[in-house]
Write a protein that binds this DNA or RNA. Structure first.
Lengths: 114, 114
DNA sequence: AAGATCGTGTACTAGTTAGTATACAGTACA
DNA sequence: TGTACTGTATACTAACTAGTACACGATCTT
């Protein structure tokens, strides 16, 4: 587990103990042994719920951690399921675009006069 | 199971027998009893593979049948997983757009000078 | 030196998924 | 009238998911 310096406010007995594998495991509600195996890839990636709790705890983007776990967020799947043909076409079209083109599309949609 | 008229070339003893539940079940490689339950929603929707074989057999859009089964095609998920942030943003942005706006985007991407 | 904490190894499991296998009663038809 | 085919009810299951429970030796701190 990553050990990093805490702010050192004196409330912890040891520096870096806040992000110890055991502490993180406890905060996200799994057994330390399980988190250990997850980190080393010894077991299949956790469920979506557990992955998102972990992402939140480690302050990383949930979509990214889910992707690392080979999964896609339920709310994205839900959006696709509601309009499968339209979103299917769109995603398959975007798949072949370079990042900057997709980014331009995102901006266009956001600013858009739709 | 839907019974429809065949072309009547005389090779079948009874009309409409080509799409009998049993025949379809056999062609997609499941038990008739299972397909029966699937059709009536008595069991959970089949796996992605089985759903796609069924869609192909019935000549309907795979994405649509998957969506009816509450699923999303693996190749779409794969596209999202490769660029989770970008595609996550895009899909969440498109989620709130009306159909015609998404369609316009699809056309734009297709014709695009990207 | 002792107690706390560290990450890890091993063994086990409830619940779910995606079906199979077989038997059965109704219907068409020659 | 029998037999071939229809859809369906019932009972069962192998493989997988997503973990738990507990023990262990190493290390760190006082």
């Amino acid at each position: 587990m990553i050990s990093c310096e805490s702010e050192g406010n004196g409330s912890e007995r040891r520096i870096g103990a806040i992000y110890s594998l055991r502490k993180v495991a406890e905060r996200i509600g799994v057994q330390p042994s399980y988190l250990s195996k997850v980190e080393r890839g010894e077991v299949a990636p956790p469920s979506e719920a557990t992955t998102l709790r972990l992402a939140n705890e480690l302050e990383v983007d949930g979509d990214i951690l889910l992707a690392m776990a080979g999964k896609v967020s339920t709310d994205l799947k839900e959006a696709i399921r509601k309009r499968p043909q339209l979103f299917g076409e769109m995603i398959r079209a975007m798949r072949d675009l370079p990042d900057h083109a997709v980014l331009r599309l995102v901006r266009e949609v956001r600013d858009g006069d739709w």
